[in-house]
Design a protein around this nucleic acid. Structure first.
Lengths: 336, 336
DNA sequence: ATGAAAGCGCTAACAA
DNA sequence: TTGTTAGCGCTTTCAT
């Protein structure tokens, strides 16, 4: 009698199935990957053998020979940021039905981590999605030779999913201008973020188009705390409106301003960016440039599935202005 | 002359390195995994050969023979929920220095997805961390035979990381009681969540210990929207305080109540749970049962590294009450 | 339509 | 200390 060892449980392999079905391993393999090449009755035998044995294909072994692993790596600067979490969700949503799994790398905003993690993950994935990587251009080639798609970063020669924020930014400035604001301060994002540079560029352009007086503070850490810290600078700037790189920073300023008795939007208007899930729940509800994060993830996911095709370089999605309650008429007299 | 094909770039393998270093593949392998077994000069030759060729070990192939993949799977119900994102961060933080990678599965609250994803991922990982799985007990064995550690769910025979909320819940009730509240409503979490059941149980016990009048609404979807929807039920209950399963729900009720002119905490006090990053930024800042999410992830991560040891079953971390501004004295007269 | 054999990249005996 | 050989679980010619 065979004693079933409690913790051993060596996984069943393709030859176990083959034995149970009285066929060769090759046939089982075919049944799984090219069923049209195997006779119907055999197929049935194999099917039931698989169920009996509880066989689960080892994709690592398969990948060894086919060259395709069925995995993609997703690299994000901060998984706790709902914006990035939504991108991840989007990617996973389109990729899972194709039976692809996702490796997550949360770099915590450190680009050196990006490189080492990706390199060692490399052989285990078919492609990698880099979401808002902080990585310097010149280090890009350290990533290894896997197909890459970038989200929120433009790299020539690589496919990317970008957010077109100029239209929404223009609307935001028009919105503020229409409310009587003349002097606005922009709180920029992290130094090495492409989208931060892009948004700043766009903000500058739009401000000058509408001849608004724009002052810029940054680069900044894209966090709530950072936003709170910047309240001082906002007050100093004597602006009546502030636009921030992301919603976290916006929430941070709003909160800090209010705790000092400066009312939003009565005294100062605030516009965020991203439209994270919380943005419409806080009070005042945040006026923001809504970025379709999940959708961006989905597009990136599709790009990854077509990996290597490298067509449709640089797909863009539009942000749009969502007006809520954190913006209002500019105060008529000078504050304080 | 060898023409370098642009898109081929077949990855360099261990034999390429061996050739470059004039040694056998086995020696290269040893140099990588048991350097003490190879002579110093050889080590140096190999090292430089590795750098020259840009060799990156294929861990999938390695795993095929060692049985260890160097990967762990992490399964969460909702990656966009900052609580779960923090757990993931915690896991990754302790696991990465050991050069382990994480497969992320976001089930989006559907337990069937949990099972299929985990099964097919199984052979590619050394262990799996199930965070707050909704899965029914009887389906647990469908998970396959990999070592599992559970977070926020108790399963006999498996290691788990649990949150001890009774102390904090007692404090919360005492806090409310001290503020003059007599009638409180509890908004429960999702039906299949172990922690939801646990917290409800604890809430009931503490309420009766302090002879407070507790009514319960639930199970509920653990979201902001759900919280908003439940504002009606809160009002109906005529309670002066509400405790919710998580912070999202709390934020939802607070917001909805305020938009109906019911002031928090003047008219109704609200206590959340988790202490997500936003909880102290909104206004009023949320009084909440702070759950050490990142730390829970770290503990789970360590458990996973020791995978199979199965010791220290059921480690617990304490939640604690954080009093902020969403709770205050109970209104003296009957509302409205 | 199926099987035998070779081999993907790697490590683990076993020899030398 | 190093090389040779075998084989992990799988797919893929090439026969049959």
């Amino acid at each position: 009698v065979q004693v079933s060892s409690p913790r051993a449980a060596k996984p069943v392999s393709i030859v176990d199935v083959a034995r149970a079905a009285n066929v060769s391993a090759a046939t089982v393999s075919r049944a799984l990957t090219k069923p049209e090449l195997v006779a119907h009755p055999t197929l049935a035998k194999i099917q039931s053998a698989i169920e009996q044995t509880g066989y689960i294909p080892n994709r690592a072994a398969r990948g060894l020979i086919t060259g395709r692993t069925g995995n993609v790596a997703v690299v994000v600067p901060d998984i706790v940021n709902p914006f990035f979490a939504q991108v991840v969700r989007g990617i996973q949503r389109v990729v899972r039905p194709h039976d692809q799994h996702v490796f997550l790398v949360d770099t915590n905003e450190t680009d050196s981590e990006e490189v080492i993690a990706i390199r060692s993950i490399g052989p285990q994935v078919d492609a990698v999605v880099l979401v808002a990587p902080r990585l310097a251009h010149r280090r890009l080639d350290e990533l290894g030779s896997k197909p890459c798609v970038f989200v929120n970063r433009l790299v020539v020669g690589y496919p990317s999913v970008l957010i077109r924020s100029s239209q929404a930014m223009r609307e935001a400035f028009r919105h503020l201008s229409g409310l009587g604001h003349r002097r606005v301060v922009y709180l920029g994002g992290p130094r090495n973020s492409w989208s931060a540079q892009e948004r700043l560029r766009v903000a500058r352009r739009m401000a000058s188009e509408l001849s608004l007086d724009l002052s810029v503070v940054g680069p900044n850490d894209p966090s709530v705390e950072s936003g709170a810290t910047l309240a001082d600078r906002v007050l100093e700037s004597r602006a009546t409106a502030v636009i921030t790189f992301n919603d976290q920073m916006a929430l941070g300023v709003v909160n800090e301003l209010q705790s000092r008795g400066v009312m939003v939007p009565k005294d100062i208007s605030v516009v965020g960016c991203d439209d994270i899930p919380m943005a419409d729940t806080v009070s005042p509800a945040l006026t923001t440039l809504a970025v379709p994060a999940v959708q961006a993830g989905e597009v990136a996911g599709r790009a990854v599935l077509a990996a290597g095709e490298a067509d449709g370089l640089h797909q863009t999605l539009a942000a749009r202005l969502v007006v809520r309650s954190s913006t209002g008429a500019a105060p008529t007299e000078t504050r304080r």
